[in-house]
Design a protein around this nucleic acid. Sequence first.
DNA 1: CTAATTTATATCGTGCGCGATATAAATTGA
DNA 2: TCAATTTATATCGCGCACGATATAAATTAG
Lengths: 145, 145
Amino acid sequence: MALAPSDMLCFALHSTALAVHAAYAPLLEPLGLTYPQYLALASLASSDDQTVGQLGAELRLESNTLTPLLKRMENAGWVSRTRDARDERVVRLALTADGRALAAKAASVPRDFADKTGLALSDIADLRDVLHVLRSRLKPALQKG
Amino acid sequence: MALAPSDMLCFALHSTALAVHAAYAPLLEPLGLTYPQYLALASLASSDDQTVGQLGAELRLESNTLTPLLKRMENAGWVSRTRDARDERVVRLALTADGRALAAKAASVPRDFADKTGLALSDIADLRDVLHVLRSRLKPALQKG
DNA sequence: CTAATTTATATCGTGCGCGATATAAATTGA
DNA sequence: TCAATTTATATCGCGCACGATATAAATTAG
């Protein structure tokens, strides 16, 4: 085997994503949020009344991951899940008043995180955009395989 | 909440890491390897006879994650786990003959992945290095929090 | 030498992420 | 109209990541 993990892009991504997750955890724990729940909350706060499928399209997750996560957020009183009256297959999601209040509290988290890294906002945006490019190149790679 | 997930660096990292994981899966599945097991195998292949702690230092994981993973690799016949005779607290890891053969087969996986992305090797190395820099900046961030 | 502390690994519980499958509602086709 | 297909969500099982805790061996203190 030629490459050790520290030489691999995949490991750099994997371990950095976990490190970022760990850096967010102490910011989210006082709010009672996990990191994936925070992302779902952020999506619903910026665009309410989504379906499970629409949320999954943004978060790149499917119902096998989202349904249990959303049920936990429903139990916590942050999200309502209601079957669409016109199409009973669809579940519509909305933030409760508590959910909106929590989202308002969580709004400062990305800024707090950026402050902790000491990175310029422009550097953060640049890296974000590079990662989106890489991610977009992986879909055709999967289709070929 | 100001930011939607698609605006966040943390989500770009998270979702891209999952997409890379998904792109590796079809390359690893024929070998019977999961993605974290592949990283452990790569580490042991490039530096055999490590302890659990040394492997964890490279992979940024602790025994609560590594012990079950290594037991699965031991059950598969790829890895041996033996208590150090001099210090019975330490578990030494080594690849079996089957493990070395598997590592040889897996050696082509990063190249196959790079080919699938269509990225230049230099671009891959650049992004890897940027991510390592970001990861290194997160440790002090955690210490402060 | 013994007690206290530190170190290395293991165990347990919880929340993802996902492949495989299930269920039920909507749509399509003959 | 009604059977076949498609679509949206849910369920199940497994492996990983990690906080909290346990265990046992080594080291240090007194």
